[in-house]
Design a protein around this nucleic acid. Sequence first.
DNA 1: GAAATACTGTCACTCACTGACAAGTGTCGT
DNA 2: ACGACACTTGTCAGTGAGTGACAGTATTTC
Lengths: 206, 206
Amino acid sequence: MEKHGLRERKKERTREALIDAAHVLFCANGFEATTIDQIAEAVEVSSRTFFRYFTSKEDVALSLADEQITAVLEAFAAQPGDMPVLTAMRTAAVDVVRVYETEARYTSLQNLISVSPALTAARVERGAARFDDVVRLISARMGVDPDVDPRPCLVASVALCAVPTAVVAWRAAGHQTPESELTGQAFDLLTAGLDYPARPAVPGEN
Amino acid sequence: MEKHGLRERKKERTREALIDAAHVLFCANGFEATTIDQIAEAVEVSSRTFFRYFTSKEDVALSLADEQITAVLEAFAAQPGDMPVLTAMRTAAVDVVRVYETEARYTSLQNLISVSPALTAARVERGAARFDDVVRLISARMGVDPDVDPRPCLVASVALCAVPTAVVAWRAAGHQTPESELTGQAFDLLTAGLDYPARPAVPGEN
DNA sequence: GAAATACTGTCACTCACTGACAAGTGTCGT
DNA sequence: ACGACACTTGTCAGTGAGTGACAGTATTTC
């Protein structure tokens, strides 16, 4: 993967340093309150250089989340070919999250995302950028043409958008359950269908 | 609802004028290429005043979408009490969209959103802002406590996030079907569960 | 009609982000 | 070892979004 030599190593180092510094500052002062200048200063580069490594403030915050999506997609593609789509996606997502959630960096990033609307939106946007890839993978597994069959699209939107949103909401509601378990639970509920009955007609109980 | 008199009327007029002018400019030049100054100039107010009516450029673009969400939630609450959640949500969403999609303003806004990542993200963000309300409505209908039962949260994330995303994707893929129909289709598929089987083992066909 | 209240414009400012150019540093052939 | 070349970086200048403060003008209320 790497080209060769010193130059590449230096670049990789400043890139990592920027991610680190940004992460520390975000955690200390919050995402919106941190400026690009502060991040650049902490690494002793110009703010112009920051933008040569990352396209935006969101970009540096979400670089980890990007890796994660890539990992999930790889794991999904690696599932046995006869496994139903959502089950395969569930397995892939849960396996990957189980690994990531052991990293402190990852969990604090999740907190950051859940308290910053700007980051939440950016995360969804990045998911959307992968939308076409995901649809391709899913329709390949289902053996259908995504231009005709709308189901791959729906599954993709649920996996990229609804599940993360629900997981964040559960955590915000105070659930201490590990994220991998919440993710699994979300997929399980989706598998079974969502049309839950209304309040039972028998009153007086609770 | 209204207070009284001239001042209120004037405010309402400039607000509408800003929305109109913004919409025209967005359609003509695109969302990102349009500046606040241009919008303000078209209405002959200062750009400072623009920000007294709208908190951001996205805000003015999505004011219609906001109304729509409100309308869907009202319709949802008005569904018969014994109707299952997703069915009720489906009915509410389809009914409301059916009304909105007759307005030219609305359909062109949908186009705007689907071609601008910034607007797409902002739309999701606005949906997320209503998340708690939606969860409350859903758990009330189900007669469960959202702090204990995760299902209302999941249903909310699907309705606010997955369905719109899927609908936009289908339209982008070239489907000319009216949006109300696509919305209905999305809910139908969700009702039945999403764990579609993998490609059938019988090869040589297709 | 005058005082309290609300709306608006101007000004000055911060911050995210970009293009252009010049200077510094790494790489490679000889 | 040395120079041609490619790549990276800092500086500078500029745009556009968004905000706080203050002063002037219009509306309401009494």
